[in-house]
């Protein structure tokens, strides 16, 4: 009896050691992705990466982020929270005196950068995403305030970027979303100057429900 019990435990442990199950193959391929992408970044097994149980994700706002734009940031997060019917993203103030750059340090942050590499001056913002297995553990947002001007209500000129639209997009990345190109979405890769794209679409709603 104890021997059977030990064998069962060994089998259970072996089962735990196995990686995720891949999708089935077909006439031409041996295997496919573990899951449909559903608009999310996928790991090497084809699993969607998201925050799983670690919701809500707390983003620390770096002191350099302009206080007058904090409401816009929170409003951008609220779009995602409303669609999910739960708090996906909340914010805290970063008062630890940390450097104003997106460091991989297990703390998710939002930065407003006045210094930006000239070679990347076409980027309005950037979100770094880190995961282990299929669970996200850190995300850092940096906004390019060197090469872009932003507006909340009305643009001063045609190149100004609608900050809420931009932040909705970046917070989509924080949640694990990738760029979309075939459906109307706030996750389109480019946001033109003066354009407003602050309404989440049906595709965005369906996407977020795949994981949250």
């Amino acid at each position: 009896m104890p021997r059977r019990f030990i064998i069962l435990i060994i089998f259970a442990l072996c089962a735990c050691e196995r990686g995720p199950t891949l999708g089935p193959g077909d006439d031409n391929s041996l295997a496919t992705a573990s899951q449909a992408d559903c608009g999310f970044v996928q790991n090497s097994y084809g699993q969607r990466v998201s925050w799983k149980k670690n919701i809500p994700v707390t983003l620390k706002i770096h002191p350099t982020f302009p206080p007058e734009y904090e409401d816009t940031l929170k409003k951008a997060a609220q779009h995602w929270n409303d669609v999910a019917g739960m708090t996906l993203i909340n914010f805290a103030t970063d008062s630890a005196g940390s450097p104003n750059k997106a460091e991989k340090n297990l703390i998710s942050t939002v930065h407003w950068l006045q210094e930006w590499p000239e070679t990347q001056k076409n980027l309005q913002a950037l979100t770094n995403l880190y995961w282990q297995g299929n669970s996200l553990y850190e995300s850092d947002v940096i906004v390019d305030a060197k090469y872009f001007n932003f507006f909340v209500d009305k643009p001063q000129n045609s190149n100004d970027i609608h900050l809420e639209s931009l932040l909705i997009h970046e917070l989509g990345h924080v949640l694990g979303l990738k760029h979309r190109s075939t459906v109307p979405s706030v996750m389109w890769a480019t946001l033109q100057g003066a354009a407003i794209r602050s309404d989440l679409t049906d595709a965005d709603r369906e996407t977020i429900k795949c994981e949250y």
Partner: peptide
């Protein structure tokens, strides 16, 4: 190859 566990703005 794809980078393991990293994406920049949703792109691996």
């Amino acid at each position: 190859f794809a980078a393991e566990g990293i994406a920049f703005s949703g792109e691996i």
